[in-house]
Amino acid sequence: MNRAQADAIARAFLQPDQQREANRARQAREAWDERERRKVAAMTLVGFAIGAPIAHYLGVSFTQGGLWGGITGAAVGWLWLAWRRHRYHAGAGRQ
């Protein structure tokens, strides 16, 4: 192999092609979605942690308060995620 062939092979590996770019974009989108879903799960747990003591003070079952708090936290989290997803994808389209 001569120097010109080695340079051509190196350029082929270093220059991203459309398939690699598509894979990178897909992986970035999946990573972003995974991070956001984890945030929704955290909001669900926070909602449970807030709903349980409120239920105790209101004289309702601890688990019922935790359940409704978790549902409320999840609903707020999914709404927040939908808003962020809209902003994220709208911003990506403008670039």
Rank of each mutant, 00 (worst) to 15 (best):
R94A: 13
A41K: 15
R26L: 05
A6C: 03
A12Q: 02
V60K: 11
R85P: 04
I50N: 07
A6F: 00
R20A: 11
W80S: 09
R29H: 07
Q64S: 14
A8T: 00
G70K: 15
M1A: 12
R11M: 02
A49S: 10
Q64A: 15
Q15E: 03
V76R: 11
A42Y: 13
G47N: 05
R84T: 04
G51Y: 06
A92T: 11
A55Q: 09
Q15C: 00
A52F: 07
R87Q: 10
D17G: 03
D7E: 08
P53G: 08
A6E: 03
G93F: 05
I54D: 08
T44S: 08
Q5A: 10
A31M: 14
S61D: 13
A42I: 11
R87Y: 01
Q27H: 03
A10G: 01
G66R: 14
A10S: 05
G51F: 03
R85Y: 02
A55Y: 05
D17V: 00
R26G: 02
E30Q: 14
R94C: 04
R84N: 10
G51P: 08
R87F: 01
R84D: 12
I50T: 09
E30L: 13
L79T: 08
A82I: 05
P53V: 04
A49T: 04
G93L: 09
Q27A: 08
H86M: 09
S61R: 10
E30V: 07
G47P: 02
L58T: 06
I54T: 11
L81S: 12
W68G: 14
R38W: 06
F62N: 13
W83Q: 09
A25N: 06
F13Y: 08
P16T: 00
A90L: 04
I71F: 06
I54P: 10
G59F: 00
P53C: 05
A90C: 03
R84A: 10
R29F: 04
A28F: 07
R87N: 07
V76N: 12
F13Q: 03
G73Y: 09
M43F: 09
R26V: 00
H89M: 12
R24L: 07
Y88Q: 15
M1Y: 11
T72P: 05
R37I: 05
A4Q: 03
P53E: 06
R29N: 10
A4D: 02
G66F: 09
H86P: 02
W68A: 14
A12D: 01
R38K: 13
Q5C: 02
L79F: 06
A22E: 05
W68Y: 15
F62V: 12
A6T: 04
V40S: 09
D17F: 01
N2Y: 03
I50Q: 07
A55R: 10
D33G: 15
T63Y: 11
A8I: 00
R3G: 01
P16Q: 02
Q5F: 03
L58D: 06
R35F: 06
